[in-house]
Design a protein around this nucleic acid. Sequence first.
RNA 1: GGUGCCAUAGCUCAGUCGGUAGAGCAACGGACUGAAAAUCCGUGUGUCCCCGGUUCGAUUCCUGGUGGCACCA
Length: 298
Amino acid sequence: MKNNLIVLLGPTGVGKTELSIELAERIGSEIISADSRQFYRELSIGTAVPSDDQLRRVKHHFIRFISINEYYSSSIFERDVLELLPALFKKRNIVIMSGGSCMYIDAVCNGIDNIPDTDPEIRQKYIRLYDEEGIAGLRVALKLLDPVHYSRVDLKNHKRIIRALEICETTGMPYSSFLKKEKNEREFEIIKIGLRRDRDDLYGRINRRVDEMIEMGLESEARSLYSSRDLNALNTVGYRELFSYFGGSVTRDKAIELIKRNSRRYSKRQMTWWAKDDSISWFHPSEKEKILEIITHL
RNA sequence: GGUGCCAUAGCUCAGUCGGUAGAGCAACGGACUGAAAAUCCGUGUGUCCCCGGUUCGAUUCCUGGUGGCACCA
């Protein structure tokens, strides 16, 4: 009997959480979360993690399991998921992975090229270079160390250039030499099921959900994290805007409005990412029976 | 009721001494290989309130409407 990973994906707010739990209950599987901000145990309201009730209904993995102070990445996620899956497949030949973090989902489905770990100090060094000399300084360094990548990379995106530079310096080889871009074969089938809604409908849900988060106490959750605001894990919609409010640069109402806007923009970016993936079968979240049909006939 | 001011993009407004218009925000499109809810790139989307008039040509000037605001009654 072959093993199947059902990848349930969709933009933020589309309704993945509840549907994934209902599906998992029906087929008796467990759920792997592929939401990179639900990984952090310090965050809950702003990341819309499943409720305690929901977590009791179905066993979830990768929910609130690391600290915002820890380093994590899509590559580590790939490794962690691939290590966990055999145990899950022993219990049931179907596992559901549900989430919206595009790059993390890709890491599990297709793999990421093997690139050596880097020393955080080296990244810091290039961040300093960026602060002092701007994007131009980064470009000069990259052109020297990896002319191939220099000709391909988005030369206005400092994060991309810094990433390439830190690899070049760590390994003594050009970053581009590590990029094979080959799809890694998996020992299980991958069935991608995408959830989508009309834009007005989705945006309405996003706006309402932000109001609900505020009612549930997002402000105090964010306030308790304010001293850690510079951590990458907190450079996240729902928190950064409230930090601006705490810092006095925007009003509370404006911050809430910005959370809504940035959530909407995020959902659009997710849809753009998936638009070119023709292996996804798309459904409206209400089409549960149709989706079950597919899953149960595997 | 009278007088004055205003009406231009989704919003706030600029502008055209008459040659069909532009900023900010919003919106929209895209990129993405170990920070990714991050980061970056691109795009003006318009009966210039309406009916007439003057003019080769009116969003711009003029009559008259309509709506809004202010002041006087």
